[in-house]
Design a binder for these strands. Structure first.
Length: 322
DNA sequence: GCCCTATGTTAAA
DNA sequence: TTAACCTAGGGCT
């Protein structure tokens, strides 16, 4: 269920709590047991997110690739080093995003008995992480991991990831600038070559990596773009503005640990911002748009629910006559 | 208990 | 275009 922002938070969290440490890797459920042996007892040397995929690099040059899919989630626990570690993944209740781990309360006595279907468990001297319900959990060579990554489109969070690494003493400012500029140009170029509707394209991980159903709907609303508009009919400035808006709201998501796309002046309902005041269109079908009199529309497209405002995101006309 | 839902992807038809 | 897959929680009976 998580979109790219959650996976980037995960990558940071693994770096923070497990980076450089030797990990015991197991599979209480059993399904991951043979592959777990390949990295059991190895040092975690890198933690990287690309779109919705997480890549953990180990000292023997093998890579653990995890994709949470719809239901996957990681939970963490441990001593005071884990006090900031949140569980990240599928929300267990409507209205819940991430919840803090029960770390740092009393002495750490090792990981608890596995609860439910724990596909993979990583344990260090200071704490543990449990993975449940992933679409993918496999051990790859670096070459195989590179092949997977080569199939993914540009990631709007590449600059945010660069900033995190810079703060950890890795990479350079110039690198971040170059990478984010290249990612944006890549996105614009890919859109120009596609005739598929922009609403479909934003969900295509080979075109753009990390955007899911919420960010798709919200970004198109914020940019007043009709989701059915063919990609190649978007002007280059519009495509650039769309990229920049996606970057902006996803970076907010990494910071906040939840998706909030509304601007303060557009929140009306009383109570906390999230979740009831967090979105413009997602799960707001039949409700009145926050900006106009129209009702939010819902249509199932390619098996996913597409939300949009017919008033604020009108059908584009190719030649606008004045 | 049973049914539904979910920020996702893949393979078969 | 449809079904399958992975899992847990909430609402219902």
């Amino acid at each position: 269920m998580p979109e790219g922002h959650s996976v980037h938070r995960l990558a940071r969290q693994f770096d923070d709590v497990f980076g450089g440490q030797v990990l015991a890797v197991s599979s209480p459920q059993g399904r991951f047991a043979p592959a777990a042996k390949l990295i059991d007892g190895q040092q975690l040397v890198s933690s990287h997110a690309h779109g919705k995929q997480l890549f953990l690099g180990f000292g023997n040059d093998l890579v653990l690739r995890v994709h949470l899919g719809l239901y996957g989630a990681w939970s963490f626990g441990g001593d005071e080093h884990f006090s900031g570690a949140s569980s990240i993944g599928a929300p267990r209740r409507v209205g819940e995003s991430e919840h803090a781990s029960a770390a740092g309360q009393g002495p750490y006595e090792g990981p608890p008995e596995p609860v439910g279907q724990v596909r993979a468990r990583l344990v260090s001297a200071h704490g543990w992480a449990d993975l449940r319900g992933p679409t993918a959990c496999e051990v790859l060579t670096e070459a195989q991991a590179a092949t997977v990554r080569a199939k993914l489109g540009p990631d709007p969070l590449i600059a945010a990831a660069g900033e995190f690494n810079l703060a950890k003493g890795r990479g350079s400012r110039a690198e971040i600038t170059d990478d984010s500029r290249a990612a944006k140009q890549d996105f614009i170029a890919r859109l120009a070559k596609k005739k598929t509707p922009i609403g479909t394209a934003l969900m295509d991980q080979a075109l753009l990596a990390g955007v899911g159903n919420i960010y798709r709907a919200e970004a198109l609303f914020r940019c007043s773009i009709d989701p059915f508009m063919p990609c190649n009919e978007l002007s280059k400035p519009s495509a650039a503005a769309l990229w920049e808006d996606i970057v902006s709201i996803m970076e907010d998501g990494v910071r906040d640990g939840k998706i909030i796309t509304t601007r303060p002046q557009h929140r009306s309902a009383p109570g906390p911002v999230w979740p009831d005041n967090a979105y413009y269109t997602y799960q707001r079908q039949h409700q009145q748009c926050r900006l106009c009199d129209a009702g939010i529309a819902l249509m199932e497209v390619a098996g996913r629910k597409l939300y949009w405002c017919p008033g604020c995101q009108p059908k584009a006309r190719k030649r606008v006559k004045r």
